[in-house]
Design a protein around this nucleic acid. Structure first.
Lengths: 115, 115
DNA sequence: TTTAGTACTATGCAAAGCAAGGTATTATAC
DNA sequence: GTATAATACCTTGCTTTGCATAGTACTAAA
């Protein structure tokens, strides 16, 4: 079996959250995000990122401002909206709960095999 | 925006891993798994679980044995194959890496905003 | 024999990542 | 001035997968 697929599935659900974390304090345009995440194991492709940013924009989580570049066409710099900050707080909690659950399953089951 | 969806996305990718963790030491049939996971926030539906078990069976990760029940039709009790145990070890590592990455993004960015 | 409960399976839909290709803008080379 | 390359954003089609729903099969009790 190919564990790459399962591993990719794990990443999928966390991508949106990670991108919001990135944008929490620093305005980024698409390539910034790709570059930042490629340093970690949360890789993201163009064809994934642009639709995702548009979706979050449409949902009122993100906003953007055009900004000129010295090396090419202008860029959309994304930041969190106030609503986005609130949603992020909720997602922080979801992440805490879910990761605790997984760690519980991992650790506890090695002991007495019960929840 | 509905955070439920994003939260569900987070769960999705971890479901397969969690189910393998459950089956690591104890043989379960479908309802066992649903019941165990419903105690946590890793909820799983019938329509999700059965195809997933079949997929993992087909991939050689799981095997099952029919076992009679006193209260109804016989049950498929699933356990990990030797290959399944090996895959699980890899997934343990993936989970460790990915959760570390998310926690890094969460914590580090609140300090100096760099990776 | 019918009914209810349990267990497994199959079908169709929707969401989302991703590969690939496309358009537009800017700067550089000729 | 035009052509080429680099950058930035967008779109389309495919695939995977969770999920709702409906269906089949077996067992036990009424």
């Amino acid at each position: 079996m190919n564990t790459d697929n399962t591993r990719a599935q794990m990443r999928k659900g966390l991508l949106e959250y990670c991108i919001m974390l990135l944008l929490k304090q620093r305005a980024c345009y698409a390539n910034d995000i790709i570059e930042q995440l490629s340093k970690t194991d949360m890789i993201v492709m163009e064809g994934t990122l642009y639709p995702l940013l548009n979706r979050l924009k449409k949902d009122g989580i993100l906003k953007y401002e055009w900004q000129e570049s010295k090396t090419g066409p202008p860029r959309k710099y994304y930041t969190l909206t106030p609503q986005g900050h609130q949603v992020l707080i909720q997602l922080d909690q979801s992440w805490t709960e879910i990761s605790n659950t997984v760690n519980l399953l991992h650790d506890k089951l090695n002991d007495d095999n019960t929840l």
